[in-house]
Every structure is written in C-alpha cells, then in structure tokens.
C-alpha cells in the first residue's frame, strides 16, 4: 500500500501533530498523517471521533495546532488552498434557496481567479463540464430544492470538481442515501479516484469503504488504525473502532 509515500513528489496531504480543540474539548489529537498523491482513502470512526474536524482542519476551516501541508503548501486557519476542494455534509447547505443546479456548481469556479467578480462564461463552461462528469447536466436548470438526496450530493461533487482540485475532501457523502443512490454515488467517486485525484472521504458505510477505497484510516480523536481497508475493517478492527472505542495502535497500524 502506498500510505506514507508520495507517488509523485511531495505528498498530497501531510499532517504533523495536528490537533483541534473546541471550547477546551479535544476533537482531534496529535494526528500524524501522510497521504500520497492519487490515493483514495476512507476515514472511519464513531460519531464525534473527529473525522469532520480533521477534514475541516485540512481545508483551513479550523483553528488547529500542528502543521498541515497540502501539495507542498502550508495550510493555516482561513487560508484558501487552491489544490483542495472540501465537500461539507449535505445537510449543512440551504437546499430551500431558489437556486439552479448550475448556479451552485458555478460557485466552485470561485476558487480560482478574482473572488469578487461575477461568474464569467468560462466559469459556466467549466461548470457544465463538471455537471457532465457527474451526469447532472440535464438538471442544470432545475431548482436545487427539488433534487433527490443522491442528485444533491452529485451537485456538491460537481461543484468541487469545478474547482479543478488535486485533493478532494468528502464529509459523509453517503449519509441519508438509500442503497440505489449510494451505489450511483459510489460509481461517481470511483470515477473521480480513477482520474488521479487524491480523495479523503469521511464515512460510516463500511461496505462502500471496502469496495471503493483501497486504504482506510480509523479515528477516535487520534488515529487508531491505518492500512489496507480489508485489514483495518476486519472484524477485530471494526470492534476496536466502533465498539471498544480508542485502543492502542497495534495490529493494523500506521507505518
């Protein structure tokens, strides 16, 4: 497995002693992590294990301690890292707003170029391209409030893709989806992974993790498992991650 080794130049994501605290509560503790370029990694753990906080810290959304380096760029709180696209949980967005699918996807184009400018025709062309990749181009004029959960998730993925990122951070994209929608979303994410983009995906769906992601990182505030998905998510690993809580890093461990 490629964990710990950059496939091409510097790693896609490198975290050194990363920590996040909220009002004195430790959400992420002393995370050391290296994800190589082009890797597809699942991030699993119980609710409150720090998965979302870790993704937000890598995105520059959290005031964190330690270091995060993405494609050689040092990340700090409030920084906008061009190589990174973060897809928050679907429930964090306001789907009742009267916006079209295309208006949402075009928002991804703001990551490059002047952020105070109005969307250009080039932005719209890039958004349409992203919508085609995720097969939602026929829905471009649809109102976002009328989409199904799976369609809405693909809109968020297309928006991220329109950013032309090198690293994609996904926060529980499968949450609340039925099996058919989850299957089609898995296919979309597999397509993204095969395009050479680095993907780190927080999730609870272990079957999907096994079928889509070669590597899995398990968290319980700190990293408690890291390796090939089949090993991290074997019955003993699952018990350690979800039943017994944090345990010493041992059997299937970080290298």
């Amino acid at each position: 497995m490629a964990q710990g080794h950059a496939l091409d130049g510097s790693p896609a994501i490198e975290a050194i002693g990363l920590g996040v605290r909220y009002s004195g509560r430790e959400a992420v503790r002393n995370v050391d992590l290296i994800i190589g370029r082009g890797e597809a990694v699942a991030l699993v753990g119980r609710n409150g294990a720090g998965k979302s906080s870790l993704l937000r810290a890598i995105s520059g959304l959290e005031n964190s301690s330690g270091q995060v380096i993405v494609h050689g760029e040092h990340c700090h709180h409030g920084a906008v890292l061009a190589p990174v696209a973060y897809v928050p949980q679907r429930s964090s967005a306001r789907w009742d707003l009267p916006l079209s699918v295309q208006e949402v996807v075009v928002a991804g184009c703001r990551a490059r170029g002047g952020r105070w400018r109005r969307p250009t025709s080039a932005d719209r062309a890039r958004a349409i391209q992203a919508m085609k990749i995720f097969r939602i181009d026929e829905l471009r004029d649809s109102t976002i409030g009328n989409l199904s959960g799976g369609q809405a998730q693909r809109v968020l993925l297309a928006r991220a893709f329109a950013q032309q990122p090198k690293v994609l951070l996904l926060d529980e994209p499968f949450a609340g989806l039925d099996s058919a929608s989850a299957d089609s979303l898995s296919t979309a994410i597999k397509d993204v992974c095969s395009s050479g983009m680095t993907v780190l995906c927080a999730m609870h769906e272990l079957a999907i993790a096994r079928s889509v992601f070669p590597r899995t990182i398990a968290m319980d505030v700190c990293i408690i498992g890291d390796g090939p998905t089949s090993e991290v998510l074997d019955p003993r690993g699952i018990e350690r991650i979800f039943v017994r809580g944090a345990a010493p890093v041992s059997a299937v461990d970080r290298t």
Partner: peptide
C-alpha cells in the same frame, strides 16, 4: 417554497421530482 432534498432513489438520468 422549495423543499430540502430528501433521500430518494435517483436514477442516473434522474428526473426532477
């Protein structure tokens, strides 16, 4: 007023509900 998306089975071509 628009509603929030719910979990719904969506075919790839997905007609809008």
């Amino acid at each position: 007023w628009s509603r929030s998306p719910k979990s719904a089975t969506d075919d790839w071509k997905g007609s809008v509900t």
